[in-house]
Amino acid sequence: MRIESYAEEWQGSAKDNIFAGILIALSALPGAIAYSFIVGMNPSIGLLSMGIMMVVLSFTAGRTLMITGPSSGIALVAAPLVTSHGPMYLIAASMVMGVLQMLFGIFKVGRLIDRIPVAVVIGFMNALALLLMSSQFPSIFGISTATYIFAVLSFLIIWLVPRWIRFIPAPLVSIVVLTLVAHTLHPNLKYVHDLADIHVVIPKLQWEVLPLFTHSHALGTILGYGLTMAIVGTLQSLLTAKALDVLTNVKSNENQESAAQGLANFASGLFGGFGGSALVGQSKFNVKIGATARFSTLVTAFFLLLTIYVLGPVISLIPMVVLATVLVSIAFNTFDRRTWTAIKAAPVRNTATILITMVVTLATNNLAFGVLSGTAIYLVFYFFGKESGKDDRYQSS
């Protein structure tokens, strides 16, 4: 990248970009907190992770204006690791994930994203939506009548608010309004403070994870999860980058983006956080509300880090059911709207590919296995099948 073009990426209206950066930070708060609970980490760590990643990516990203943080794909992959081995394994795996993504960028693996069949991407997104949705059911069902009432109210707010208010994210409105209601009425609900103590986290180098790399069993586990997280994170991030390419008419540097995502994830793990990937909803919102310069994402990073020190007591009062409804709404938006179009284009091949990708992903709880299985089935149908239909091997979202 030339110095002149890089300098231009930092230029833009200070007011517009600062406003966009703060709004994006506010819109990302619910997800960062909720994904932390899915992983099994304290929400403070989730906010720290996103803050560190966004600082790094503000300077290094190959796709400007893209928002990265704790995400559904990485959270669902990482959760079993924390459950079975503990947080230190996740920190180590996040560092491995980062190194692998940097290697993906160096060896130009990013170009392979164009060769993933559309049907596999659709199956991946639909399976991701189902996994994310099902992970939130324990926070909604079987708790209390008040929980059901708050769930319905939250869904209504998320659905209705965008009709009248567009510059404030509906999930944030739901969280603020229903947290105030809950704090006033004290209904029988589970709150963030019931599951975790929101506390100040000081970033520090995680030297204590280094001994894990000296034990063969621990190293095998860390490398396996790190590789899976790297594949899933790269897939999500580069697909999101392509979506922003369409919105901005600016081509992403895919290999630089992969390396930058890796550096961000490595830095997050190095200072006690965990890995993440691009967030398609927040990334699109960032463009639509007028962000134009790299420093908008730097504002987002600093605001998130400030939140850890200032808003901890407020975050602890959020009802868990409200966070759950936010993630369920995200899951609904994750379902790929091209599903029926793809099935009509090649009923046998694409249907089989979508279903195999989803079934393997749901059965193994591993998004990378699902993508590999779906791609294998697609290639079998493509090379040996007799069905005619539009060749979509090289189309991606």
Score class of each variant (00 low, 15 high):
1 M>V: 09
2 R>S: 15
2 R>P: 05
8 E>Q: 15
23 L>I: 13
26 L>R: 04
29 L>D: 10
30 P>D: 07
31 G>C: 02
37 F>M: 10
38 I>V: 15
45 I>P: 00
47 L>I: 03
48 L>T: 05
52 I>C: 06
55 V>C: 11
55 V>M: 12
56 V>W: 02
62 G>L: 05
66 M>I: 09
67 I>A: 06
71 S>A: 14
75 A>Q: 04
79 A>S: 15
81 L>M: 12
87 P>N: 14
92 A>D: 04
97 M>H: 12
99 V>F: 12
102 M>T: 10
116 I>F: 01
121 V>H: 08
125 M>G: 07
126 N>E: 12
133 M>C: 12
140 I>N: 03
145 T>Y: 12
149 I>D: 07
149 I>P: 00
151 A>Y: 10
159 W>R: 14
163 R>E: 14
170 A>D: 13
177 V>G: 07
177 V>D: 14
180 L>N: 06
188 N>E: 15
198 I>S: 08
204 K>V: 05
205 L>S: 10
207 W>D: 13
210 L>D: 14
212 L>R: 02
213 F>K: 10
218 A>Y: 01
220 G>K: 03
228 T>A: 15
231 I>F: 15
231 I>M: 09
237 S>C: 03
241 A>L: 06
241 A>H: 03
242 K>S: 12
243 A>W: 00
245 D>W: 00
248 T>R: 11
252 S>P: 11
254 E>W: 11
266 F>K: 01
269 G>A: 00
278 A>V: 01
280 V>E: 10
281 G>F: 07
282 Q>Y: 00
283 S>W: 00
284 K>I: 13
286 N>T: 08
289 I>H: 02
289 I>G: 06
290 G>C: 05
291 A>P: 11
294 R>C: 05
295 F>E: 13
296 S>G: 09
301 A>K: 00
305 L>A: 01
307 T>D: 06
309 Y>Q: 12
310 V>P: 01
312 G>N: 03
316 S>G: 09
322 V>Q: 08
322 V>D: 07
330 I>E: 11
331 A>D: 08
333 N>A: 10
337 R>C: 02
338 R>T: 11
339 T>G: 03
350 N>F: 12
352 A>D: 10
354 I>M: 03
355 L>M: 11
358 M>V: 01
359 V>D: 07
359 V>S: 04
360 V>M: 04
360 V>K: 05
364 T>Y: 06
373 S>Y: 04
374 G>P: 01
378 Y>P: 03
379 L>P: 04
381 F>H: 15
385 G>L: 00
387 E>M: 02
387 E>R: 04
